[in-house]
Each structure stands twice: as C-alpha cells, then as structure tokens.
Amino acid sequence: MRFRPASAPAASSAGLRCFRNRPGYGKPPRWSQFKKGKSGNPKGRPKKTPASIAISENPTLEALRAELGRKVKVTENGVTRELTVREIQLRAQSRNAMIGNAQAQRDMYRQARELDEYDAKLAQEAKARRADLYKDHQEWHAAMVTIYQSAAQHGLEPKIVWPHPDDFVFDDGAQRCRIRGPISERDVPLFEWMRAERDALFVRSALWLKRPSKARCMQINIFDCLWICYDVMLPLRWQTCGNAATLLAVIRKISRRELEESTKHYAAKADTLRAQLNLPSPGKAEYKVANTIMKTVAQRLGYRSLAHLEAELGESGIAVEAYCGS
C-alpha cells in the first residue's frame, strides 16, 4: 500500500482537464480546429487542365516526340539527305526484315496490315462523304430547276439567280459535281473579271490572225489557248466556245484599228475589275507559272524559254505587251 505525503495536494479533475487541453506540439487550439461534420476544404482539390497534364505529367512523351522528329544527316549512295529518327528507324526495320530477321518481318507484316486497314477505312469514309455531297448537289440542282421553271411560268426573274441549273456539271461515274460559274451574288464580280479577260484575249486572237504571215513567228495562236482557259470556267450562258468560229469570222471583217480599240477597252475593264476585287497584279510568281507552261511549246518552236521567245518577238517588231497580254 502506497502512502501519499500529506504535504502534496490532491489534483482536481478540472485541473487535469485543463492540463490535457493545453495547446502545444500536435495540439492546436480548440477554436482553430475543424468543426465536426464540416470539411476543411469545401471547394475541393482544383482540377488540372489538359495542357498542364500534358506538360507536367507526360514529359517522356514530349521527349519521345521531339526525338522521333529530330533530323539526322544520312548518306546513301553518295547522296547526303536529312531524315527524321522515325524514318531511319523504319528503314532499319525494313532492312532487318529483308535480310531474314523473323521478328522484324513479323513487325513489318503487322504494320503493313494495319496500314492497309487504315487506308481502306479512310477510303470508305471518303466515298461515303462524296456520295452524300453528290446527293446534296443533285437536290440543290433540282431545287434550282424548280425555281427557274416557276419564274418562267409567271414571266418573272427568279428570286435566286445563282447558281444557274445549266452550270451544274455531274459525273455519275466518279460521283462528283462541279459548278462552272458563280455560286452566289458575291462571286459574280470575279467571273465578270474573268469574262473581261476572256474578251480581251479573244480580240487579241483576231488581231494575231490579221498580222502578215511573216510576222507570225509562232505556228500556233497562243491567244486561243489563253481565252479558252478562261472561257471553260465561265457559266454556260457566258461561254463562246460553241460559236467561236462564227465570232472570229465576223471580227475578221472589222478593221485592225477598231480591234485594237476593243482590246484596250476590255483590258481596261479587266484592270478595273481586278482593282475592285483587290486581286494582285501579275508578278514573278505568275510569270514563273506562265514560263513553266509555255516552256515546252517554246522549245518545240526552237526557243529556250518564254523570255527567249519574248526577246525574239521584240526583235521582230511585235509588241510583247500586245502579244503576250497585259
């Protein structure tokens, strides 16, 4: 039996409770503690955005993508070229398959089969989209035919003028359709400019035929090629290919001076429409395209390039501007 000294006072229950609840390490004050049944973070953990996840949580994928796209100089048959790491890897795998590596052969066969299936799927989807688009154009054409027929019965102009029913060109075999001409009123100025260019080139073609045979250093009328290129893109009602021979026969009876005035008129009209449409003036890019197209024709006639042909035309006394167009 243990004796308690008489001098030691007895500890009260209130004092012990106060000692236990005294703030200290691991014991925050009661007034700052979380209330029972209430969350300490009511808004919850903030969600991460996909961009932050891709950058912060997938550094390996980013590094792998950069490494596969890295270009390396490779020399093959004495020719040095730059290839990506991905291309080099596929070439190495193909080389191993060709020398008899069974694993490489299996991988290449599997990848080829997956590629064929993927291409077949894309082709099927493209065919379905093309069929849907072709059907939409057929319905559009039927609607325009109805609009024009209804307007003709009442002797009125159709409310919707473009596209004209005759401008729909259908290819049933390929399931394709194109519209030669404006689709809406907004496209009309562009085709007006193309018609003015066509008319100017058409009159220049007649002027070329009026030149003496010695002045025609080329055996073909280049303006026929140019104005036909514009003509086939115009609406059917604006085209002149069907009666071009008749028009040329009529134009030949007109004097050369009147034809030159008509050429200036159509060229000025085309320039005005070009300025209204903010179309860029012919520059180096257009001349490069023209040189590429005309190089074969010029070489057959004994000229090195379009520049050589223009130089010969200038020496022959033929204005290059009037001959090759503005």
Score class of each variant (00 low, 15 high):
residue 89 Q to C: 11
residue 104 A to H: 03
residue 95 R to F: 09
residue 73 K to S: 13
residue 175 Q to A: 12
residue 114 E to W: 05
residue 131 A to Q: 07
residue 171 D to G: 04
residue 129 R to W: 08
residue 102 A to K: 15
residue 153 Q to M: 06
residue 147 I to H: 10
residue 154 H to I: 06
residue 80 T to Y: 08
residue 161 V to W: 02
residue 147 I to A: 07
residue 83 L to W: 10
residue 117 E to A: 15
residue 148 Y to F: 08
residue 157 E to N: 07
residue 98 M to V: 07
residue 133 L to V: 03
residue 120 A to C: 03
residue 78 G to T: 01
residue 135 K to D: 06
residue 103 Q to C: 06
residue 77 N to E: 14
residue 182 P to I: 01
residue 164 H to M: 02
residue 108 M to C: 14
residue 90 L to G: 10
residue 170 F to T: 01
residue 138 Q to A: 05
residue 189 P to A: 05
residue 119 D to H: 08
residue 116 D to H: 09
residue 139 E to Q: 12
residue 74 V to C: 04
residue 165 P to D: 04
residue 155 G to V: 00
residue 92 A to E: 15
residue 95 R to K: 14
residue 91 R to P: 02
residue 151 A to H: 01
residue 139 E to I: 05
residue 171 D to S: 09
residue 163 P to K: 01
residue 105 Q to L: 11
residue 75 T to R: 10
residue 77 N to K: 13
residue 137 H to W: 09
residue 109 Y to Q: 15
residue 89 Q to P: 00
residue 174 A to N: 10
residue 182 P to Q: 05
residue 166 D to G: 03
residue 134 Y to G: 04
residue 108 M to L: 11
residue 96 N to M: 11
residue 81 R to K: 13
residue 80 T to R: 04
residue 151 A to L: 01
residue 119 D to V: 09
residue 187 D to V: 01
residue 89 Q to K: 09
residue 178 R to F: 11
residue 170 F to C: 01
residue 91 R to S: 12
residue 115 L to Q: 14
residue 158 P to T: 01
residue 156 L to R: 08
residue 137 H to I: 03
residue 130 R to H: 13
residue 179 I to T: 03
residue 96 N to Y: 15
residue 123 A to K: 14
residue 107 D to T: 09
residue 118 Y to C: 03
residue 184 S to P: 02
residue 115 L to A: 11
residue 129 R to V: 04
residue 115 L to R: 09
residue 161 V to P: 02
residue 109 Y to T: 13
residue 95 R to G: 11
residue 170 F to E: 02
residue 143 A to I: 00
residue 181 G to E: 02
residue 132 D to S: 13
residue 134 Y to H: 11
residue 178 R to P: 02
residue 154 H to P: 00
residue 154 H to R: 14
residue 182 P to G: 13
residue 144 M to P: 06
residue 163 P to H: 05
residue 74 V to E: 11
residue 116 D to F: 15
residue 94 S to I: 03
residue 135 K to Q: 11
residue 95 R to S: 11
residue 142 A to H: 07
residue 79 V to Y: 06
residue 118 Y to L: 09
residue 130 R to A: 10
residue 99 I to N: 04
residue 101 N to V: 08
residue 90 L to Q: 08
residue 97 A to H: 04
residue 189 P to M: 04
residue 123 A to P: 02
residue 101 N to D: 15
residue 149 Q to K: 08
residue 179 I to G: 08
residue 174 A to K: 15
residue 134 Y to S: 04
